[in-house]
Write a protein that binds this DNA or RNA. Structure first.
Lengths: 277, 277
DNA sequence: TGAATAGTGTCTGTGAGACAATATTAT
DNA sequence: ATAATATTGTCTCACAGACACTATTCA
């Protein structure tokens, strides 16, 4: 079967890439942000909303449906490079935090052909975006109701609503690995409901034991704002003193204050960068 | 540029997969086990050793070097299916716990062509293996010295030694994400030193907050054995009472005892399966 | 002045770290 | 008897949950 070669160079010179069927590979990005939603009352803090970035497909398959930003990885770029290129091209976003999330590879996940999707979790501070989004891209607010067996998600960008339900099944002898299955899907292309759930779960876990959240904060922030971001991502309210103890080691107080609300002003903090080079 | 199609069916009928260069995709498995090493003394417990499964390459590239078991993913199977097939074919192992680890995709990681490696973390109970390994596969004991910036690893199967050094650099605003770089590599094919480090780190983290360790234990085990497995994977010693509190909720006492050591016999425990269907 | 958020103090219970003490076997 | 592991007890300290209290601003 295998021909015999006398050296690695000779083998490589004769290597025929086309001998096996090859799949395509895309890089898809689950980009999240938490930003102000606007105030009800001059005195109240503006509420924070959790949102994900979608783009409208202008080609088949799933033409005119919304999907996560993504695209085919070129032969001479990494999937992370592709993710950055795609975000720049499709949405006009640059310098985004990215971390690899999961590789989705069900055999029939794309009707065109066999496609591996290397997905990325991305985080941005939406309030600090100076670039304006391209018109085919839009932020959708996330509402997620979770029970023991499933996630009921509604995405809303003000004009359109997308709803889907994803079931979860715990795998044997793991305490954190679920199999996700799309139970209902009204409006989101491909298996992207699974990607969004995987991204939300990853973020929810990592906000507790890493400094990942500061990728969605501006340079200066109040502890109240930071707490709101935690609460939105964790989906539950936190008690002030407990929260302050948790993040005490991660932030540094500045001499700046934030005034202007109808209440006591608060001190602005910055991220305490722990990288020593 | 893009032709216009009137329907998704028409688009799909005309879709030309070969329009873009496609990479190859492999599935590579980091399979770990912790097993007895033999006794120094009739009274002492046998020491546990941490080991990884390697196979000897019989083809170019890296002919006659050791590497992790792995192979190309077929067009109609998932990467996990491929991992199971490869383990059966190359090593004669079946029914192994697998969890997706990371997708490695440096542009030049394979001299043949562009190759994405979807890697899997695998765990087995080596003591309970009834199948005999194929002769091209071998378990290598792992010795890992870790400092702030690097891992110095020695793999030893009794006949051969493999050594490599992998550097780690913490990424900005994460507390757990490192960039791994191979600094020295004497004997392991491809970028597999990185895969092994990624696998060891994943296991070290997950042993603390999941039940993943029970995938490397037999049906019945003593708490002493279980503690040894923790210690080998975490690379540090644990205090008995603390350890027992940690795993108290995960195991169930049986009425079996393990006797035969030159010391007090110990109760055998089983995993307390938390899956309710 | 009052509504609202900012920020601090403190009590309590849980749980991990540390060390000590006891129990039981095979040789 | 002794070496070795098995198993439990308990003291202390740190810290999270819970709640109460004080501080400060602007309409």
């Amino acid at each position: 079967m295998e021909k015999e070669y006398s050296s690695e160079e000779e083998f490589l010179k004769n290597y025929d890439v086309t001998r096996f069927d090859r799949p395509s590979v895309t890089s898809d990005i689950c980009l999240f942000s938490v930003a102000d939603e606007g105030k009800d009352n001059y005195r109240k803090l503006s509420k924070k909303c959790y949102s994900v970035l979608l783009v409208k497909r202008n080609n088949y398959p799933y033409k005119d449906k919304w999907c996560l930003p993504g695209g085919f990885v070129k032969i001479d770029e990494t999937s992370e490079d592709a993710a950055r290129r795609v975000l720049a091209d499709e949405t006009n976003l640059h310098n985004v935090f990215l971390e690899q999330l999961y590789t989705f590879d069900s055999v029939d996940r794309d009707p065109r052909c066999r496609v591996f999707a290397v997905s990325y979790l991305g985080l941005v501070d939406k309030n600090k975006l100076d670039d304006s989004l391209f018109p085919n891209a839009s932020w959708f607010n996330i509402t997620c109701l979770e029970d023991k067996k499933s996630y009921h998600v509604t995405l809303d960008n003000g004009n359109e609503q997308i709803k889907f339900v994803v079931g979860k099944t715990l795998k044997e002898k793991t305490t954190d690995r679920y199999r996700f299955d799309i139970l209902e899907n009204d409006g989101l292309a491909f298996d992207h409901p699974k990607l969004i759930i995987a991204g939300m779960e990853r973020l929810k876990n990592k906000i507790e034991y890493t400094d990942i959240v500061f990728n969605m904060m501006g340079d200066y922030f109040t502890l109240g704002e930071l707490q709101q971001v935690y609460e939105v991502i964790l989906g539950k309210e936190l008690l002030d003193p407990a929260f302050r103890r948790i993040i005490a080691g991660k932030v540094v107080k500045t001499d700046k204050m934030q005034t202007g609300g109808g209440h006591r002003p608060s001190v602005l903090f910055t991220y305490k960068n722990k990288i020593e080079s």
